[in-house]
């Protein structure tokens, strides 16, 4: 491994995440490749979301949470003393499990994030470009001033993706982005991800193994330690390797549905 080589978008070093005394995620080492989609899979409660939320420091809002180890973006530890979590979140956009647009117009949903981040330029263009980027433009171009709440769940989720790419992050974190959506909307999101990976590195948490197999280039398999109930990555490789010839027996059981 060559950790400093620039092809990695983000890396973790012995990353452990605690809630109080409980170690929810233990000793994770991941090198996420640039311009690829990396899926994090594993059974419920194994710390997939916790791990994902550590990347953009969303766990900071849980008062008892604490991190050991490092997450390196361009070789800079995101948990360093001098690091501003606000800036971190701008560079690592996030799409949540349930679509959570702001109770504002479609236009404002995108413009707001851009504005607070000091966007200088033509806002209308940015909004259009972001909506196009999220494959939503054609559906909403005539109703930009309408409330985002009037959109369907799938459209709302694509709007959330649009507002994320509007602030030009390097990496997009997706926390089961399609789990609250119907199959057709899910498909559209997956197609969109393929488009997005041309420009962005994507990390996606999913409990849907078919989805992981369909969309991702790399897959990280997480599992709980039996004794401590801490989650960790037991295997991390190219997706086809994970799904066809995993080295770990537990991974094989899980991806073939024999887990449990």
């Amino acid at each position: 491994m060559q950790p400093e080589t620039p092809q990695y978008a983000i890396e973790t070093r012995d990353l452990s995440i605690f809630y109080g005394a409980f170690e929810a995620v233990k000793g994770v080492n991941l090198n996420i490749e640039k311009g690829k989609i990396t899926a994090i899979i594993g059974p419920s409660g194994c710390g997939k979301s916790t791990l994902l939320r550590a990347f953009n420091r969303m766990n900071d809002f849980v008062p008892t949470s604490r991190v050991k180890g490092e997450i390196l973006l361009h070789g800079v530890n995101l948990y360093g003393k001098e690091i501003d979590p606000v800036e971190v979140r701008r560079r690592l956009g996030m799409v949540f499990q349930k679509p959570n647009p702001f109770p504002k117009s479609i236009y404002e949903n995108i413009a707001w994030g851009a504005r607070i981040n000091g966007f200088r330029g033509n806002m209308d263009e940015l909004v259009e470009e972001s909506l196009r980027g999220a494959a939503l433009w054609d559906e909403v171009k005539d109703k930009l001033k309408q409330s985002a709440y009037a959109l369907s769940g799938g459209q709302q989720q694509r709007l959330c993706i649009a507002r994320t790419i509007a602030i030009q992050p390097e990496i997009i974190l997706m926390d089961e982005p399609a789990s609250a959506l119907d199959p057709i909307s899910t498909l559209r999101i997956e197609e969109l991800m393929q488009e997005l990976k041309k420009n962005y590195t994507i990390l996606i948490v999913t409990h849907n193994m078919q989805q992981a197999a369909r969309v991702s280039d790399y897959t990280a398999m997480m599992m709980l330690y039996e004794d401590t109930r801490s989650g960790t990555v037991i295997e991390f490789d190219k997706t086809d390797v994970i799904f066809t010839r995993p080295t770990d027996k537990r991974t094989e059981d899980y991806v073939t549905g024999r887990f449990g």
């Binding site: 501003d84 800036e87 000091g118 966007f119 200088r120 330029g121 972001s130 030009q168």
Partner: peptide, 17 residues
């Protein structure tokens, strides 16, 4: 999408501050 429309480096630091 036009790059560098957001404040960068030192500029960004000041902006966030």
């Amino acid at each position: 999408m036009a790059k560098y429309t957001y404040p960068q480096s030192q500029d960004l630091q000041n902006f966030v501050n």
